[in-house]
Design a protein around this nucleic acid. Structure first.
Length: 588
RNA sequence: GGCGCUGUAGCUCAGUUGGUUAGAGCGCCGCCCUGUCACGGCGGAGGUCGAGGGUUCGAGCCCCUUCAGCGUCGCCA
């Protein structure tokens, strides 16, 4: 009985063994009198050799890529000089004994055995072929290992994984809900969870003090390379904890994951406040793989004649400066393109100063004095050969644009090595932010977050000064997730709702079940949720979540393999007590 | 919803100033080939140039409209 082995297993030491291999034809090389077939499975590739006198030779002549085989044969060393060092199994080959063609394949619409880029929607339509490719096999495997490591870690710390329902109540805060119409209750809907937030808090009230879940979440919002409508969170909550308790357990988890899956020892995470993050990096999710800290150089331009700067300063704004290492080599045209990028990021424009070895050039040369340029250069510790980029605007805008440009410069200068992992904590977020659409204060995160100790007293006096016991975990410029210490007293939760201008009736209708739960001895608690898709994406060195998701929706939220969403029979719609609106435009 | 980029063979792409029969590599089909591993050689098939309209003697190329895809901004408590 031959031993069944994977296509990546055999080595020189296996010489002489009788083995059975199952897999797909990766490629056939037909020399007329000798045929090689590379057999592929999830583990690797093994070369099968068909000698012309062998009965299977005729079969081998008709093999095509992606045919499925069972090959039984004997392992032999390749003749000296024909070993393939690029293959893990390259020292050996399997001389065919018996060949069984388990299934034939159509000619695939793209080459499975090539890493050549293919239109993503074609890949998604034939996802089963795309997933056969080694890169996807590796990514999906890494994903499994990461999720397993997370479960192992929390299990070892005494956490229980508890499943929460997929059909819950719609709560109007936050992103748009995916709705499920009810057949039994006309005109009523379930919602798919945007996160199990309230359920996990209720689990704390239920006495399950250490909860975790690999939780599926859905948000009906436009997608991005780093955002899917359907995603997975590592959801964690614990009772009787402080903020530091949560940070400790989440940080330990991530360091465990990186060590066990990637073999990388991650140093303790630096912590910075939201205020520091904005001041130094212009964003609340800074990429700490590189420095290039921003500088507010408004002071250096007091009394300037330059209208752009003067109006920014006079209206209480700021001039924020960024160093571009080696940027002095850019042409005027390239600076113009960079200015366009800044505009795309929401800026009004950009002033550049090139510190060339042959002198200083600038888009605002006429208005800038030697002293002013020297002040900016000193503030950024810039050197000859660098460029200085300046953004004048309302302070929040100037920092935001400068922060995005900092990442752009980081890209251009190759400072964002995907094999470097710069984790960080960001804490001390403001409780409220001003909603730009309404001008009203709205919770910066969610309304179940507890204010910072001592900040309750601000709620009537100056609510926008309140800070939250909220924290973000950041990695390489991505927000991995956020968490908070929660409000655990009903009257405090009501106070927050009141500040958010919800009437008692609205509170009862939307959150009545939850506030009631808080009234029955809710323990102090807090937690966090991390985006597993993003974690896996970064761990795999990918730039798009779809590369680490087996069956993702495309960028416009379609499943192009199954062709969903799709129309349904009229009766199904009727059963749900729904009537479809007339078509606005004929589809397709 | 705004902006940018892209749409040419099954795949990845080229296509000049608007000018004869739209090309390449890979893949596919056939024949040849006993040590290849992106095997090699010879031959062949394969095109609604995303769609519609316009300008022109003539459009893959210019103009308008539209559809689709990717990215980005808005949005994502």
């Amino acid at each position: 009985m031959p031993n069944r082995v994977s296509c990546g297993a055999l080595r020189a030491a296996d010489e002489g063994a009788e083995v059975e291999l199952c897999g797909w034809v990766n490629r056939r090389r037909d020399h007329g009198g000798l045929i090689f077939v590379d057999l592929r499975d999830t583990d690797g590739i093994t070369q099968i050799v068909f000698d012309p006198q062998h009965p299977s030779f005729a079969q081998a002549e008709h093999l095509r890529n992606e045919d499925v085989l069972r090959a039984v044969g004997s392992v032999r060393r390749r003749p000296s000089g024909t070993e393939n060092p690029r293959l893990a199994t390259g020292e050996i080959e399997v001389a065919i004994g018996t060949l069984e063609i388990l299934n034939r394949s159509q000619v695939p619409p793209f080459q499975v055995n090539s890493e050549e880029p293919v239109d993503e929607n074609l890949r998604l339509e034939y996802r089963y072929l795309d997933l056969r490719r080694p890169r996807m096999q590796r990514n999906i495997r890494t994903r499994h290992q990461i999720v397993k490591a997370m479960r192992d870690f929390f299990d070892s710390r005494g956490f229980l994984e508890i499943e929460t329902p997929m059909m819950i109540k719609s709560t109007p805060e936050g992103a748009r809900d995916y709705l499920v119409p009810s057949r039994l209750y006309p005109r009523h809907f379930y919602a798919l969870p945007q996160s199990p937030q309230l359920l996990k808090q209720i689990l704390m009230i239920s006495g399950f003090g250490k909860y975790m879940q690999i939780a599926r979440c859905m948000r009906d919002e436009d997608q991005r390379a780093d955002r899917l409508v359907e995603f997975v969170q590592l959801d964690v909550e614990l009772s009787f904890c402080t903020q530091d308790d949560v940070l400790e357990v989440m940080e330990s988890c991530m360091r465990y994951v990186w060590l066990t899956v990637l073999g990388v020892e991650v140093p303790p995470f630096p912590r910075l406040t939201h205020q520091e993050a904005i001041a130094k990096y212009g964003v609340d999710k800074p990429d700490l793989r590189f420095g290039l800290e921003l500088a507010d150089v408004s002071q250096s331009f007091a009394g300037t004649e330059f209208a752009v700067f003067r109006s920014a300063i006079e209206s209480g704004g700021a001039i924020v400066a960024l160093r571009y290492p080696g940027g002095a080599a850019l042409s005027r045209r390239e600076f113009d393109a960079l200015t366009e990028t800044a505009k795309q990021f929401g800026g009004k424009g950009m002033v550049w100063i090139a510190l060339g070895s042959d002198g200083t050039k600038s888009s605002a040369a006429r208005f800038l004095s030697e002293t002013q340029i020297a002040a900016v250069r000193d503030a950024l510790a810039a050197e000859t050969g660098d460029a200085l980029l300046l953004f004048a605007d309302a302070a929040a805008v100037a920092y935001a644009v400068a922060g995005k440009m900092r990442n752009e410069v980081g890209d251009r200068c190759n400072l964002r090595d995907p094999n470097v992992y710069a984790f960080a904590w960001v804490t001390g977020f403001p409780y409220l932010e001003i909603d730009e659409a309404t001008g009203e204060p709205a919770p910066a995160h969610h309304p179940f977050t507890a204010p910072a100790p001592g900040d309750w007293e601000l709620i009537d006096r100056d609510p926008t000064a309140m800070r939250a016991q909220h924290y973000d975990m950041v990695l390489n410029g991505y927000e991995l997730g956020s968490g908070s210490i929660r409000i655990h007293k009903a009257q405090e939760q009501r106070k927050i709702f009141e500040m958010l201008k919800l009437t008692p009736e609205q509170v009862e209708e939307r959150f009545g079940f939850f506030v009631r739960a808080l009234e029955y001895g809710a323990p102090p608690h807090g937690g966090m949720a991390l985006g597993i898709d993003r974690i896996v994406m970064i761990a795999c060195g990918e730039a798009n979540l779809r590369e680490v998701t087996a069956f993702p929706k495309n960028s416009v939220a379609r499943d192009v393999m199954m062709d969903a969403p799709s129309p349904v029979p009229e009766q199904l719609v009727k059963d749900l007590h729904l009537r479809l609106a007339p078509e606005v435009r004929s589809p397709g």
